[in-house]
């Protein structure tokens, strides 16, 4: 149980970074941390006690394998995370080019 709570606090660290930091790069790092926390959580859910990695091999006897589906799913989710991170970084670079700063309190032409 404790490990799930640790994972959730990891997610909260990312959330804190997203909501509280003023530097765009730090915000992006917050997004990455939160993403990894969710991926880790998904992997942890699939764990069985004393389980082994879900690798099917010709001469090993397969006993007590952990659930393989979340591992495939998380791989996809990591790829999506890569794409999101890349587009966020590209936007951040362009923003720096236009505004000359990474501070979001100074990037406020638009008011929501």
């Amino acid at each position: 149980m404790a490990i799930y709570l640790l994972c959730l606090s990891f997610f909260s660290v990312g959330l804190y970074g997203i909501l509280r930091k003023r530097n765009i790069i730090k915000i992006i790092i917050g997004v990455i941390i939160a993403e990894y926390a969710v991926n880790l959580f998904f992997i942890l859910i699939a764990y069985r006690i004393e389980g082994r990695a879900p690798i099917y091999s010709p001469n090993a006897e397969i006993t007590n394998m952990v659930d393989a589906l979340p591992q495939a799913v998380v791989l996809t989710s990591i790829v999506i995370g890569l794409a999101t991170t890349v587009i966020l970084i590209a936007l951040a670079m362009r923003i720096f080019e236009k505004y000359g700063t990474f501070d979001i309190t100074k990037i406020r032409d638009l008011r929501g």
């Binding site: 970084i89 590209a90 362009r94 720096f96 080019e97 000359g100």
Partner: peptide
């Protein structure tokens, strides 16, 4: 391609028009 795009992006900092 992503790496190349990040490397080749030229910085032309605009004067702060605001």
């Amino acid at each position: 391609a992503i790496f190349v795009a990040f490397v080749l992006l030229k910085y032309e900092p605009e004067k702060n028009k605001k």
